[in-house]
Structure formats: structure tokens, C-alpha cells
Design a protein around this nucleic acid. Sequence first.
DNA 1: CGGTGGAAGATTTTT
DNA 2: TCTTCCACCG
Length: 656
Amino acid sequence: MKNKKKSVNPVSDTPLVGNTAASSAMPASPKNRNPEQEVAINLEASAILVTAGPGTGKTYTLVTRIVRLIRAGITPASQCFAITFTNRAANEVQTRLRLELGDAADALFVGTFHRFCLDWLTTMENYPAIIGQEDRALLFKQIFPDLPGSAYQETAVAITSYLEQLAAVPSPPEPGERTRLYLDELRRRNVLDIDAIIPYFVRKLHDDLTFRDLVSKRVGYLFVDEFQDINRAQYLLVTLLGRQAAVFAIGDPDQAIYGFRGSDFRLFDEFRNLPHTATVQLLRNYRSATAILQSATAVIRHNQRPGRQKIIPQNNADGLLEYLPAPTPAAEAESIVRRIEELMAGISHFSINSGRGGETEEGGISFRDIAILTRLSRQTPEIAKALDRRGIPCQQVGSTPFFMANHLSPLYYFIKAASGMASVGEYLELLKTCPGIGAHTIEILATTVQPGYTDFFIAIDGLKLATGQATQLAKLHEKLRVFKQSCIINNISSSINEAISYLDLTIPESETKRFFALSGIFGNDLAAFANHLEHNSANTIYDPRAEAVALMTLHSAKGLEFPLIFIAGVEEGILPYSHHDGRDDIEEERRLFYVGMTRASRFLIVSSSATRTLHGISRRMQPSRFIREIPPGLLKTVEHKLPGHKKTTANQLKLF
DNA sequence: CGGTGGAAGATTTTT
DNA sequence: TCTTCCACCG
């Protein structure tokens, strides 16, 4: 098992310090630890489950416990395994461990469930290669060449759900026909679907006692963060290893918001109810002002959950809690922007008691202290526009980066191909926009080229293609070569126009400019540029150092903390979201709102619009029930009279 | 091959 | 409304 993780993770070079949860509010020295943390850190038990509400020092407690075990010589670091759900969380834990343990921190495993499983699987002889999204689609086409594209999604879902069950029951169910064919093909090629990594590992752990013994010998202590996000397969992994290892799990069932992707927070209670599990509750919140915390608590109490205890506020600031009702989404966005300007201009006349031991940092709100959260990512552009109009910088977290937008992505694939970094699937994406090459040719290539080839043109060398298409492919090959040369001799920026005209792309000037500006940074280092693009191609990640307002979904805000939080579009149908086929989960939606509320340390402002256009139809909206669940005494409703908008919209509203 | 038009569907996101 | 996916035609 290797602990030096060669992570291909986009955030690994972005140290997450500063604005992340609990970084500032936690007790810095042992004497400041609260009694519950003390217990969680020092308790001796083979299984410990810590319920840790928002802002109670979850990661601090986890890290401190690990540090204690290692420093006290109770276990060598190499037997400790800290597992998280995201690379971001892993990096955070890793960073903090390094702060405490220095290089000794490298001896323990800190990583995601996937990484954990993968590290073990790669110790096996003849271990399978892993295939991701693009290659999965490609392989799919090869196995089922006659299936229409629409069937792909359907079957992909079936496969994923089958894999989930594969791990979850003693003997796996019979897979559907297509699922079976797909899995057979994987086995034949000795490759592993990325979604199969954890189930496959768990299956092996369950069935292969030699393997389990091997793993168990190494895993003495298992630490799991955000335990409420666990799914069946992961739970089984933890409990199987927990037969030998000491398990320390920490999380908050009230913040379980990933049910839609298989997380089941009831497993949290299942673990709690195991006979040997000791439990601890962290109850002191160091983050949020009292009123904010009280409100959040009042809201989440509408969800039934036995045994939930009240969280005790430790940040004695009064805080500010506002509700901004607006007639339209545009007006709502304007109100938010205006409120930002007012609060940044000087908060003293809002009589906010900062409450932080004597610091009089009033008015110290900067752009990076602000986040605007929405239920749907679709809500962000409207707000971004409003911010932009007033010259307020913002980062749209989670959005598709501009260079991956439809009209620009061919350029991305071209650059990856030219730098020799494109996968077969990405070459095929590129071919879709190459002149003279159509769907038929791509189909042929997709069904014959083996995924995993590093040199596409070698891979297609022997293929019988129509002369016209062969010529076009040769031309592409040449263009790529010339482009690469040109990048080295001149620089990337000046070579790009050539690529754009070859691909016949129509790109808005503003975006061309951005692309040029970005490529300019890399001079003539094409590989570095391609690398950068690849790292940032999935979605825009939150950059805590950027001096900009963060705009993101409630989901992406989990784990973060800001002095000023806006939650926009708090309306029935949006938050709680109602799906058209009625499969709604009010409690999960409430948890989502709760997560959003508890991101705020000083100011929390929720807003709604009386109308909203969804799927093309304009609808009348009611304020969310969640707003009514906030104790009225704590919530101040502020009706903004916007200068730009005509007096009342009452007349317009009659239309609905 | 590549352009067009009509129909259908449309959360949240990680590895 | 906006995107994506298909079928069809020149």
C-alpha cells in the first residue's frame, strides 16, 4: 500500500486555508477544547460515532484524535487510515495533519474511499485498469453498437445501481442482460469501471478471506469524515474492516444532502446502534451568531430525528438575519447586490455586535467573505449579471468553465490532442467538429478503436476508411503537428487563431479574449497549458483566496463558512424543490436549507421572488415554508424599494 | 457530410 | 426557455 498518493486531483495544488470551516473558530490549544471534544479525542473504544453539528470542530476533532494516537505511540501512523468523500476534504485533513505531525503525516493514509480501494487493488497482481466516463461510453458503443444513444443513459443507471447492490448483499442479485454483457466485457479486458471500484473491493473483502486478512493486518485505525454521506457499499467496507480495526466515524445526519446519489444517512444510526459502538455528541458551535444558529436549529427541528440535541452557541455575536422578498428574480438579484453594497460600505450603523473577544473589526467585510447560495445552478447567471453590472467580482463555483462551453470545447480538445494528452474519447469529441468528418466515420472509429490507446493516429492506422475521410484525418494530424510547432516557436496565443479557423468556430469576442488571456500566461509551454485546462475542465472550484463573491449551489457550499451568506430563491417549488413526478423529499430539502443557513457566521440573508420562470413558463411563487419555520422574532423582513424598478408589480402579477 | 426542424425533457455532484 | 437528440434531406 502506497501512501504517497500521486493524486490526479484538481485541487491538490490549491491549499485550502483561510475560509474553510472551523479554521478560525476552533480552540487552538488543548486547554480550550470543550469537554465533548475532549471525550471524542481521548475515548478508548473499538467503534466510536461522533455526532458533530455544524461549526462544532469536526475536522479539528478528527485530526486531533489521530495526532494523539500517533504521538502517544498507541499506533504507528502507517496503521491509520483517514477516509473522506472528496479530495477537497482529504486535502484539508492532510494539510492539518502535516501542520501537527510534519513529515510523519506522510506515513498515514488520507484519501477518498476510491483512493483507498484503488491503492489496495493495485497491490494485486494483474490489477485492472480503470476506465472513466468517456471510455465507458465508448466501450458501451462497442458492446451495443445497435443501441440508440438514449438507451445508454438508461443502461448506465442500471449498471450503477447493480454495482451498488453487488456490494450490499451477501450474494449479489442476477444482473440484467445488458449489465451482464457490459460487466463480462470489462472482465474480458481486465478493466474496472470507476463506479465499480468500491463495490468490487468490498466484494473481494467479503469473499476472499486471504485478501481481507492482508488488508486487516494493515488497517488498525479507520477514521471516516462526513459519515452521514456514506452509502451501502462504503458502510459495508467500514464494518467489514471494523471487525479488526478501531473505527472512528464523525458526521451530522442533519447535513445529509446526497441521498440522490446513493448516500443513506440512516446508516449513521445503524452504526450507532451496533452493540459495541460508543457515541459522543459535539454540541458547541463556534461559528454562527446566536440568532442564526437559533433559527437554523428551529428549522431543522421540523425534521423528525430521535435523539437530536440542541446546539449551544459559542459565538456570542447577535448576528443579523434578514428576509428580502422581491417581485421578480431580477429584482431579487438587485436587492442582494444592494444589500452587499450597504453592508460593505459600513456595518456599524446596523448595530452589529461583533462579539469576537474584543476585536473591533466592524465593517471588515470584503468580497471573499460573501457567498450567495442557490438551490439550482440555473439560478446563478441572473445573480452574476446583477453583480457584474455593479462591478462586483464573483466566482461561479461549480459552473462549467468558459472554455468548456459548447462553442469553445472543440478548441479544448484540439489543444489536448496537440499536446498529446487526449484520450481516444476526447479525440472523438474533437472529430465531431472537424471538417469532412461526420457521424458515420466517428461511429466506425468509436466501435473499432481500443480505448486506452495513447496515440490516436497509431490506433487508427490500420483501419479501412473511405479515402476522403482518411485524407481529412491526415489533415487533422498535420494541423495538430503544425500547431504544436507553432506554439513552441512562437507562442500559444498567436497559434490559436489557426486552430479556430481550421475548426471553423464562431466564438463571441469576449470569450476569445479570455482564452487568449489565459493562454498568454503559459507562453509557449503547450503541455503546461493543456495540463491547466485539463485540471480545470470539470467545473470551477472554489478558490478561497479570490477576492470575489462566491456564487454556488447549496450543495457545493457544504463544509465552507462565510461571514455573510445569502440564500436566494427560497420559494416553494425551488427550496424545497418539487419534481414534476412528485418524488420530493421535504426533509432532505430542509437539511439543504439548514446546511446553507449554518454556513453563515455573522449575517444571513434569505430572499425570494414572487414570480419565477421555470422550463419556459412563468409561475407565481410562494415564499418557502422554511422561511415560516424561522422564529418570526429573529427574522427581519426588509422590503427593498428599488429605484430602477417601477413602483409595484401588483398589476403584472394579476396575469398569473 | 452537414444543415435543418421538430420533439422531449429539464435538480443537486463526486470519483 | 433552452438544450439535446433524433430523423430527414440536399
